[in-house]
Structures are given as structure tokens and as C-alpha cells.
């Protein structure tokens, strides 16, 4: 599979996953704020929840795939940064998103 085409596919596929997750996440955030839930009350609901752990775990993986590919395109087209350098930098950015995201999910769900 040619790399540019594989990245195109990965970005579209991750967008397909992200679209409903983002909508649910935003709805959830608005619901939690309007409901006046405190941080402790939110954590009480998420701690130990396998469901929320899977939901946000999937979110993190999809975002870690999606964002670096888009950023790579922007850097290549606007700054002309091509070759191995940009690929390594964006791979590192993807790993950073993944690590920070999993760390956050783990803290919120305790799993």
C-alpha cells in the first residue's frame, strides 16, 4: 500500500471514528456543566468504569492517528518541510498525544 494513500485512508477512517465520539463528548461536557456536577461527582461516575475507559481510550487512539497526519500535510504544504524529518517529528507528536491521552483516561477512570 503506497504511504500517501495509506495515510489518506488512516485519516479518513480515524475521522469516521472521531465524528460521533466528539459529538457525544461535547454533549456530555455541556450536560455535566449544566447539571452542576462537581469534579468529585464526575470522578465518582467514571472511576472503575470500563465503558468510559473504552470510550475515551478509542477517542485518544483515533485522535493520535488523525491529528499528526493533518498536521504533516499542513507542514509539508505551507512550510515545505518534507522528507524523513517531518515524518519523525509527527510520529513523535502522535506518540505524545497517545501517551498523554492514555495517562488522562487512566487518571479519570482509574483503569
Amino acid at each position: 500500500m503506497p504511504v500517501p494513500a495509506a495515510l489518506f485512508l488512516a485519516q479518513r477512517a480515524s475521522a469516521l471514528v472521531l465524528a460521533p465520539l466528539v459529538l457525544i463528548h461535547l454533549g456530555l461536557a455541556i450536560y455535566a456543566i449544566h447539571g452542576g456536577l462537581s469534579a468529585a461527582e464526575i470522578l465518582a461516575r467514571t472511576q472503575g468504569s470500563l465503558g468510559w475507559s473504552l470510550f475515551y481510550g478509542l477517542f485518544v487512539v483515533a485522535a493520535a492517528v488523525h491529528a499528526p497526519i493533518g498536521l504533516r500535510n499542513v507542514l509539508r504544504e505551507w512550510l515545505g518541510w518534507k522528507g524523513v524529518g517531518v515524518n519523525l517529528a509527527l510520529a513523535a507528536f502522535g506518540v505524545l498525544l497517545l501517551v498523554l491521552g492514555i495517562r488522562a483516561v487512566s487518571a479519570v477512570t482509574g483503569i
Binding site: P2, V3, P4, A5, L7, F8
Partner: peptide, 12 residues
């Protein structure tokens, strides 16, 4: 199709 899918092809 391989040429169209390569770098600088349709996905750009």
C-alpha cells in the same frame, strides 16, 4: 491507479 495514488497524486 498506482501512479495516481503515489506521492503528489490524487490524495494531495
Amino acid at each position: 491507479l498506482a501512479a495516481a495514488m503515489a506521492g503528489g497524486g490524487c490524495h494531495s
